[in-house]
Design a protein around this nucleic acid. Structure first.
Lengths: 191, 191
DNA sequence: GCTTTTTGGCTAATTGCATTAGCTTTATGG
DNA sequence: CCATAAAGCTAATGCAATTAGCCAAAAAGC
């Protein structure tokens, strides 16, 4: 029986492609094995369980998102960077809508932590252009992440049901984020 | 064999309670039947499939969220309403963190559309206090929904990893939303 | 190059879940 | 009270995830 040339990365990449078609919920070892041309139990030589596969997919998706954001931020600062990063965030969710949810799994092992930090880091870096730092920067980063994730998640799920361009709404959201960051109180609120 | 007194609503309520314990992904007919004291196939007399059960759970969760928001908005307007509704939104997600994701399923049948519209309506109503209407109101509603959903979704999933109070971050986010709504351009941007 | 070890295929088997078919009993309606 | 409908049940089916163990291919060592 000649080797099929599989490896954890090969299996994961094919799983990601399959997830793009059927979604993370309907990703099965049976379908994956069929695509790779091996028997189902053979997959366990490369990935210890379906749960482990999902964890690997989260690392892959989060890395891709992080790279997209980092690329978008290159050579940009302040409002320009905000818009570019926001657009890149949404573009990624559009490119892989069924894989995108995997970016939301909390990281556990070092590699996942690293790629997740890169995503947050790209957003955090925008704030330098707004002069926001310290705890304010944490709050502001969380706000940006919330707005971006919230928007693409609802959009991706078909939650925007009114006849109003989502592109337009997104542009307005980014504009409002920009305004909010410009107007961020200079003194840390001690609420 | 005396009747167990089940009905679609009874089954759904028990499923919601079970989902609160194990999450939507690990909700099984086997576990549900055990809790209700019947055999698994008996559940099919009341709910046609596990998928249908998930749809019902979405209606339940969305209704609950809608009621919480409507209650919070009573007797309030403008910034006060915004803060109250935002707090109610997050409180609901905290009360039923494992059921909350069910609120994000796009509605299909009339009842689900109705309860989903109620959620959106409570947010939409806040905007009257800010003098925002028409397409601007759609954009603004989407922004608020994105920020609230995004925040609680990331929080719920453990995505806020830095040692900074999520309560504080949320308060800042609501403050920024308020500022963004106050500063909403009076003229519809034709971007 | 040959031998040994490791790795990666496979089949068979197990467990659990979702669902269907059909029988029996309970509750409801006339 | 009788007939009908509804709601229980068991048995069966198909599928998914996983384990055990065998065999062959590839890698490692001499």
């Amino acid at each position: 029986m000649p080797r099929a040339g599989l490896s954890p990365d090969v299996v994961t990449a094919e799983a990601a492609a399959l997830a793009d078609e059927v979604g993370l919920d309907d990703l099965t070892f049976a379908a994956l094995a069929a695509r790779l041309g091996v028997a189902v139990p053979s997959l366990y030589k490369h990935v210890p369980s379906i749960a482990a596969l999902h964890r690997r997919l989260s690392v892959v998706a989060t890395r891709e998102l992080g790279e997209a954001l980092a690329d978008a931020a290159v050579g940009r600062a302040g409002p320009d960077a905000l818009r570019a990063v926001a657009d890149a965030y949404r573009a990624y969710a559009h490119a892989r809508p069924r894989l995108y949810p995997a970016t939301q799994r909390p990281p556990e092992e070092p590699e996942h932590v690293q790629v997740a930090d890169r995503v947050v880091g790209s957003i955090f870096a925008i704030l330098r252009g707004y002069g926001i730092e310290g705890e304010d920067a944490v709050d502001a980063t969380r706000m940006i992440r919330s707005a971006l994730h919230g928007f693409v998640d609802i959009e991706r799920a078909g939650g925007f049901r009114l006849a109003r361009s989502a592109d337009a709404s997104f542009a307005r959201l980014v504009t409002a984020l920009d305004a909010g960051l410009r107007a961020w109180p200079a003194d840390s609120a001690k609420e």
